[in-house]
Design a binder for these strands. Structure first.
Lengths: 101, 101
DNA sequence: CGAACATATATCCCTGTGGTTATACGTCAA
DNA sequence: TTGACGTATAACCACAGGGATATATGTTCG
């Protein structure tokens, strides 16, 4: 589900912005997304269902923020793939270095 | 492009199998994929274009293997998002609260 | 209350793409 | 060379889903 959710560029950009700049209203996200407000709301719904964001209602605005813990399965998957590969003899020192950072 | 490539379950399963079990022929991959051989070939083409697999021709068969170094951008992206998140004060507070629970 | 505002939902359209079958291309064996 | 085999390409279909516009829901303010 995570891959699918993050596959769309617009949606991924929204999530990245929430990671970089913290909590944002739908309006703020819309103004820099290049698509309509309903489109942004739909993307936020998908992100929320994937657990990647959480929403907080304050008056008539809704504030969204990134829920980074949801990325854990992604890191786990990547590490697992690397593990399988590594256990089958080969260098990939470069990748392992980056994983250790 | 990585997210998009790995978003499809069938294609991701093919890649995972190549990671777990090493080099495989198209026929071997097809037999356990649940879809037709042309579909598998198409998926392999997409994976190849994303740099996630390599192909090696041997007679009339083609052997595919995972090219794990292509996952590096994925790890970099994830780490970058985590970095943005941790560098923001309010989120650190949230994290600490959750750690105390 | 009524109007402006912020967001969510409904509806529809249209493209992308994953699936199929049919077929072409290359390779091995006889 | 002919035929069987392994894989790739072609042509087509069906549907998911991202986009827009229109409208509903809910909130603040005069």
């Amino acid at each position: 589900m995570l891959f699918r959710t993050l596959a769309d560029p617009t949606r991924r950009a929204i999530f990245e912005r929430l990671c970089r700049q913290g909590e944002q209203t739908v309006g703020a996200l819309t103004s820099q997304s290049g698509v309509s407000q309903p489109a942004v709301s739909k993307h936020l719904g998908v992100l929320k269902q994937a657990g990647l964001v959480r929403d907080r209602h304050e008056g008539r605005q809704t504030h969204y923020s990134a829920q980074l813990s949801a990325l854990a399965p992604l890191m786990d998957w990547t590490r697992q793939m690397a593990g399988f590969w590594e256990s089958r003899f080969d260098d990939l020192e470069d990748l392992l270095k980056r994983m250790d950072q």
